[in-house]
Amino acid sequence: MDLDVKTAEREFEGKDLADAVRAASEALGLAPDAIRYAVVDEGRRGLFGVGSRRIRIRVQEGASNGDETETGPPDGADPATEVETSIRRLVGLMGLDLTVRGQGEDGSVRILLDGPHRDLLTQRDGELLAALQFLVQRMARRTWPGAGHIVVECEGYRDRREEEIGELAREVARQVERTGRPRKLPAMNPYERRVVHLTVREFPSVTSRSSGEGFLKQVTVSPASRPEQG
């Protein structure tokens, strides 16, 4: 039998990540900060305790009680892991059933959310997704200075949203072409407005322009360079 003590792994459970880490730290006699773990099962909260599953983590025993035994991922993507852990905690505290996947690339961190509650993230024009991204960026400034730019995304949401907005812009452009009357679109963020402007360019007889103050502005689509009629 080939048993390598250094990399022996043990699994721990808890009602949430912090709880599981606490269990591991108690069992191994280590500070919670010193625990290196991988999440085996994200667990789920369930509704009113029905169908809930405890979270399971796998801890490498002996990994961190020596001096400086490197056990992190080979690329040492520390900020990404830390951001990921914090978002997982945030999502857990919100009581949402979502999986969190982090990818670090060139100092920036990309977080992908998915799961049963993903619709909550994308409804009302992705308000919650945007709020999460904004807050996490704010938190990162203080807590993980090494983290760089952080993007919080929901699989495929951006693409779908882009398609939706393109379709809306096309429809409105056609209408303006037909009626000759300007139309105002709902308030959008800079990225979304860009999609509108690019789409409207496909229609030579109409033009688009943003108006308003602040982050969200409205785009007006109007007939192009006709003599003003009031």
Binding site: L96, E127, L128, F134, R138
Partner: peptide, 24 residues
């Protein structure tokens, strides 16, 4: 720091709390 420019941080916090509240 908890309010942010034009109240953007506070608004984001409210959005997150509202989502958490919706479940309850």
């Amino acid at each position: 720091k908890v309010i942010g420019k034009q109240g953007r941080t506070a608004r984001s916090i409210r959005t997150i709390l509202a989502a958490a509240g919706m479940k309850l």
